[in-house]
């Protein structure tokens, strides 16, 4: 009794900042780290801007119609109006509007391919790592095989087989991109499946599915977020290359299509279409690269100390 009485006032009499800091979860801690990281905040700002542009273009609130004739063919950039700020293309259409619509395509390709590949990668990786044995052998064989076909060849073949166009590209990027995530998830599930908390869950009667999705998955889900930034970068880069090869977007402006056009324009001194698409792509890829690094630092417990 006496000790309890003696201790209680001592803690309370401590100044505010010397008390134990409140414990933080992985996500709470990561959020705090990101908030302190100025570069990460700038990147989030840039990515939000790109997302807003993509959404407003999607709903037709800005830059519509993109194929409106705003001036003469190949008019160089000028500050006389917002439409002419990046000049015009062969048909007198605003390059600025095309860049904005290219943003819509690029972001949608990143998002859709992630939505397709994340469930596949997580499920296959989780099953392989959790169950082991022949399930593991089969899944590892499957993703080793898929990753043995270099990505660009697989992308070309899938879009070639499915036909050209945006939705074929979503699928092609989705079915080629899950391998990396599956590999990471498998490794994490192998690590986690025999930890105490999973054994505890088992002892109170949690079944396999409950252990995989309710207990282990929340503890490894930060790898999905880290993977997301890598996924977006590779999707945006692949979109440009596929559109450039004529296998991607048809009849819509995309950065790849613009760079393809620029191939013939450069010799006439028309550089603005190339510059517009290249820089639009540069900033978004840069933001994803830097944010990916910050997220890895903030979320990966191994790197913390």
């Amino acid at each position: 009794m006496t000790t309890e009485v003696a201790i209680a006032p001592t803690i309370q009499s401590l100044p505010e900042n010397e008390k134990f800091p409140p414990s933080r979860s992985l996500w709470g801690d990561a959020l705090l780290r990101i908030k302190r990281d100025r570069i990460a905040l700038i990147c989030i700002g840039i990515l939000s801007l790109y997302s807003i542009i993509a959404l407003t273009c999607q709903f037709g609130w800005i830059a519509t119609p993109w194929d409106k004739v705003v001036g003469a063919a190949y008019q160089p950039p000028s500050f006389s109006s917002i439409e002419l700020i990046f000049g015009t293309d062969l048909f007198g259409r605003s390059v600025f509007f095309k860049v904005l619509h290219g943003t819509r395509i690029a972001m949608s390709v990143g998002l859709m391919s992630s939505l397709l590949s994340i469930p596949v990668g997580v499920t296959l990786g989780a099953l392989a790592g959790y169950f082991g044995g022949w399930v593991d052998d089969l899944i590892v064989w499957f993703y080793t095989t898929v990753s043995s076909i270099p990505n660009i060849m697989l992308l070309i073949s899938v879009t070639f087989v499915l036909g050209k166009g945006l939705s074929a590209m979503y699928v092609a990027l989705g079915v080629t991109a899950w391998v990396g995530l599956a590999r990471v998830m498998r490794g994490e599930f192998i690590k986690h499946k025999s930890r105490e908390y999973v054994l505890a869950a088992e002892s109170i009667g949690a079944g396999h599915l409950s252990r995989i999705f309710k207990h282990i998955l929340p503890n490894v889900s930060h790898f999905i977020i880290i993977n997301l930034s890598i996924q977006f970068v590779s999707a945006i880069k692949s979109e440009v290359i596929l559109s450039f090869l004529g296998l991607g977007v048809q009849g819509q402006p995309s950065w790849g299509v613009m760079i393809d056009d620029a191939k013939l324009e450069l010799s006439r001194g028309v550089w603005w279409q190339l510059a517009g698409a290249t820089f639009a792509m540069f900033f978004v890829v840069l933001a994803f690269n830097l944010l990916g690094d910050s997220l890895r630092d903030a979320l990966d417990p191994k790197l913390k100390h």
């Binding site: 880069k237 440009v240 290359i241 450039f244 950065w255 790849g256 760079i259 620029a262 191939k263 450069l266 010799s267 550089w271 190339l274 290249t278 792509m281 540069f282 900033f283 890829v285 840069l286 690269n289 830097l290």
Partner: peptide, 22 residues
């Protein structure tokens, strides 16, 4: 390195071909 990684390969090719060769 991070800047170099973020530029598209096609940009390098078109710029190099235009500037140094043409």
């Amino acid at each position: 390195c991070i800047f170099g990684m973020s530029l598209p390969m096609l940009g390098y090719i078109l710029f190099g071909q235009y500037f140094f060769a043409f």
